[in-house]
Amino acid sequence: MPGLMIDRDVLIEAPAEVVWRTITEPDQMSLWFADRVDLVIEPGAHGYMQFGDQGGPVVVEIVDPPARFSFRWNYPSGEEPVAGNSMLVEFTLTPEGDERTRLRVVECGHELRDWPDAEKQRYADEHREGWAEFFDRLATVVGKRQ
């Protein structure tokens, strides 16, 4: 799904280190994501995630505790995920006070890994606004026609 971009965030009443363990430890991942997670949290590591009776390979990209974690997946096609055939999921953890963390997730089909952070941010900002506006307008138009 090149071009698609999802951007969501949540405020968590826990320090970044705790949130980090929740999103990266395979036992924990299986509580909020896949049913079974076989994955070593190291950059470039190849693993596998099982969803119900289907599953697919996953490749770890960035591991920067407790601030940034990303992986690439292309569930449910089963092919080895590389840029162009898969979605990149990137978590960013930002402390807001002592025991509070903003967790943001961006899932997109573009190859952002090699981009400078500033460039990536600019792209994300532009697209987030673009998408939001676009779908807001769309919802209005579609609503009117129904």
């Binding site: 969501r8 965030d9 949540v10 405020l11 968590i12 009443e13 826990a14 705790v18 949130v19 363990r21 929740t22 999103i23 924990q28 509580l31 909020w32 994501f33 963390t101 967790l103 997730v105």
Partner: peptide, 10 residues
């Protein structure tokens, strides 16, 4: 998923 992460982490 984020809601589940929030509950687990908290």
């Amino acid at each position: 998923r984020l809601g589940a992460i929030k509950r687990l982490a908290e």
